[in-house]
Nucleic acid binder design. Sequence first.
DNA 1: GATCGTTATGTTTTTGATAATATAACGACC
DNA 2: GGTCGTTATATTATCAAAAACATAACGATC
Lengths: 140, 140
Amino acid sequence: MQKQTKKQESTGKGARWRWRGRLWLEGPEGTFLGYGRVVLLERIREYGSLASAARSMEMSYKHAWDLLASMTRQAGCPLVVTVRGGKGGGGATLTPAGEKAIGLFWKYHDRFQRELTWMSAELQKLFCGEEKPKAKRGTS
Amino acid sequence: MQKQTKKQESTGKGARWRWRGRLWLEGPEGTFLGYGRVVLLERIREYGSLASAARSMEMSYKHAWDLLASMTRQAGCPLVVTVRGGKGGGGATLTPAGEKAIGLFWKYHDRFQRELTWMSAELQKLFCGEEKPKAKRGTS
DNA sequence: GATCGTTATGTTTTTGATAATATAACGACC
DNA sequence: GGTCGTTATATTATCAAAAACATAACGATC
């Protein structure tokens, strides 16, 4: 039985809150690096091709290609070098700039997630409960 | 003088980056407090009615009502007290819990925005440029 | 009791983002 | 030179979220 003190929780919902958030790096064209884009880059590194990277994320090839184009356009230098035709039909591999983009994003992403965790830990009493201890100070 | 050094900018794109993000408080049902929801609460306080609050944000009344219902459901206590019929047709005013929700959100939102500003300030050299300063401490 | 702007709640329409589909070109390799 | 899986690009279809629309009920005030 989840008896517990049942003092705060008994407001009907047993509400437990946490802060969540999204973080992205924005450039002149809009989003430049975000979670999905960076995972895509990582998958390209893992699979060596844009097509299978997209498949692995259940993302359409076109969408992946568009994201990559957007990143390349904004970065000013390619994050991925692509080859078409030839052995295996072609492929894609990360450039050093691409590697650096991944590292940069995760660095800040992790910092942000940590911050969210701290923030959530601060959420104890929420507004519903009577926040006036009143402490029997006579002012009834 | 908006001349500035124009040294970094000359990489072709004039790329200037900044971190952006979104923050919301999540409860058992999903989003509980987010930017739009809190602004809605503030507008209700300002206008004294849900209908005109929605209008002021160019939001449909139904959408506003749904958001409010979601918040109330999750909070466990009403953030807004509504009156229908009567003088002026009715209205809506914030409860203390509603006020507190607004304050809570902005507190964390502001902290988050400050964090984003700091993070953005750290973004000087991005990956494209040669990241080797090679001595040369004073940027002329 | 007629009026008014509101709350309350459905139902339908729009629309924007994503997925699906189609097709061409590529080039090493057999 | 035919094959293969890829890059590259355009067009169409799907779907879910938001808007738009519709309607009923409410109750102080006149």
